[in-house]
Design a protein around this nucleic acid. Structure first.
Lengths: 231, 231, 231, 231
DNA sequence: GATGAATGAGATTTCATTCAT
DNA sequence: TATGAATGAAATCTCATTCAT
């Protein structure tokens, strides 16, 4: 059985020129497979993605795939690592969000980055959120990535509206839900997110999630008038 | 080939008690299959859901499944129809959202309904959005259902902030994205959405999406500081 | 298990009027099933014929089918019996075929009958010949029916060309093959066999199979110039 | 879905010996499957033939079958193409049939070839004639093959008995019916067609179908004495 | 007599993975 | 390194037959 070397630490560089050229070729192949994997996953989703599709797009043989990845899930994991790194950078890059106009600009800029990451990795992110792959380690990778972003959001919201820690957590979750889903919809429909749209989103987010509470009147009890969801 | 009777208009109830009892048994079985389908789909998602799982949950034989549904997709379609009906009701039930406190309550109540529908049909909705099933008609069913809700939201947002029609559409999309995704996260993690959480969401939505614009300062150009998404 | 009464001797007539009416109804149902079976078999052939098709054509339920026939093969057997009777009559009706013009007329008349039988039972006959049904008894039924006809043909050919018994047998086989297949083609294409066509066939058969040998010249050895049928 | 390579034009032979040997293995397998298919079909007929049987005979796995053929029908189609080619050759090889003794020899030789083709492809031919497979293209393939032979026969018969074009067509159909069916019977019973038998058939065909008309007496009207074929 | 719902054995097809070259 | 043929477990679907009413 050819031992899959996927995701292993790089082997020591061989001395011969021939060996080095092979190595380079191998890297190119692996790269082709990763890119092919991303595009196939994007098109079909994890379950409907076939190894067959990946190798066809990458223009390599079936056997070659298993030279670089232990299995389908392993390819997915490799992509997920790439994605998690970018997500961590994203989390680290969110600075203080001022309740005033500058805060809106800070948000605007950060949101632009967020959407850019999504554009590349929407499938991965989708799969994380929906837990489609039955792999503990992979799920943890995703949780951690999202956890970092959530934490950053909680901090910034808490800074902007001090004294409502628990509420801040809920808001952070809702905010992440919104922008993540919104990004997905934009990507999946092939839409272009222009400057004006980014402005609007930034405004909504800024005012909805970061603004201080106004004085509220007495709220009457909420009563649902509809009954849904048959047993 | 035994013609699948799925998705047909219900046949007229026969007059004799004996005939009706036979019919009834069939209906019960079909119902059991639909419910089983919903729960299996919820657990595994469309692609990973096995007909085998469905019939085991419904406690019927394999053959029986194909007595009521032409195939897996057909079961899915039936569930989708049920869901689309509830979604249409949801869209129709959204009334005028006042910019003041009453508007917040209107939203709160409607959001409670929205989340209730999601609790039942999260899988269906997810599949619609992600277009997992390669079926045109099914996709259209979903688009129409979501279109109705979006339209309702656009109308209400436009009423609340007249003169920004295009902006209203973007806001409606973002709002739907948020609550849809938020509902999904809540359902998929088995969380309970309590009154306080509902309050917060309603507040965020009300202020972020329905409030009038405050005077804005000069916005400096947004510049992304990060580069994501390798080619 | 409801004992199938198919192909059994008729039970004693019940005394009550009610019982008699039921009996009549039963016969009608059985008849409907037989006819439906014939038409379904004609359309699809034995293997592709579904019990489902038969009961739909006969407008009875699945259960009812098994009230009258033990299984699919049993229905087929019943039809085969009907057919074998007609075939026997056919065999018995072939009289002396004169080498002269009257013989041609005798043949013509008999061929008309032969084609008529085929029109009704082509499927059955086809199945016999091709031995499609894995049932010994059924096959024997067919062999016997065909044997009778072959025997009659052999006798008549032998009468017409005495002293070539073995040759007569071969001729009989070829003749039967021809008219049987010809009948099939006519039936399966929905063609009408008119008087002129019948004339031609009668002529060909008369001259080809029943005429006395003319003096033959020296026959050179037959050498095939083609090679067919790859290993 | 792995694209079935069945029925494609043969790929250009690769230059390296290594590459060719790989190709060779695949070709051998495909060949084994075709041969297995032919024998299984011959034994059971199209509908009763199981892919399972084919792969067992070919000694390959289930999956391998679908590597070479899209499905059962596709295997059948491939065989049919092979058969149609041989049939076309057969049609082209029928030369002028003299009304005298040489004509009989021409026929004899051609019939030997005809029977040889049948020996190999009886199942295919049977299915064509009986239209067992619900595939338009396949049926057309068969019609064309048979059409060619019929046309050749019509030409030869018309040459031998000029001035009866319409009659020639009927005769050609009857002749083809006879020899086709006769061949089937011979093959299906495992009989050997010896020289004497071939002589007899050639004689019958020659005299029955190609000889000039003798003077005929007045034919009395043909009246059927039997009534067959219950409604 | 008749119905129609239910069954389950068996057939077809898919696809991730292995292996010889 | 790379290939492509082969595998087989698992999934989907069919249909003759049985059974409760």
């Amino acid at each position: 059985m050819p031992a899959p070397r996927a995701n292993l630490a790089p082997e020591p560089a061989p001395s011969s020129a021939q060996g080095r050229s092979l190595r380079r070729r191998g890297q190119r192949t692996q790269h082709r497979l990763l890119d092919a994997g991303l595009s196939v996953l994007a098109e079909h989703g994890y379950h409907a993605a076939r190894v067959d599709d990946v190798v066809r797009v990458a223009k390599v043989s079936h056997g070659t795939f298993y030279l670089y990845f232990a299995n389908k899930e392993d390819l997915f994991r490799s992509l997920a690592v790439r994605c998690a790194e970018d997500m961590a950078g994203l989390a680290a890059s969110l600075e203080f969000v001022d309740p005033g106009p500058e805060g809106r600009e800070t948000l605007r800029s950060w949101l632009a980055d967020f959407f850019a990451v999504h554009r590349g990795y929407s499938v991965i992110i989708r799969s994380w959120i929906e837990n489609q792959v039955g792999d503990r380690e992979l799920a943890r990778l995703g949780s951690r990535a999202f956890g970092k972003i959530t934490k950053a959001l909680v901090s910034r919201i808490d800074e902007a509206r001090p004294g409502h820690r628990h509420d801040a957590e809920l808001r952070a979750a809702a905010l992440l839900a919104m922008i993540e889903r919104f990004a997905y919809v934009v990507v999946s429909r092939g839409l272009e997110l222009d400057e004006a749209a980014l402005d609007t989103i930034a405004t909504v987010v800024h005012r909805g999630f970061f603004a201080a509470d106004p004085p509220v009147a007495d709220p009457p009890p909420a009563v649902s008038r509809l009954r849904f969801g048959r047993p």
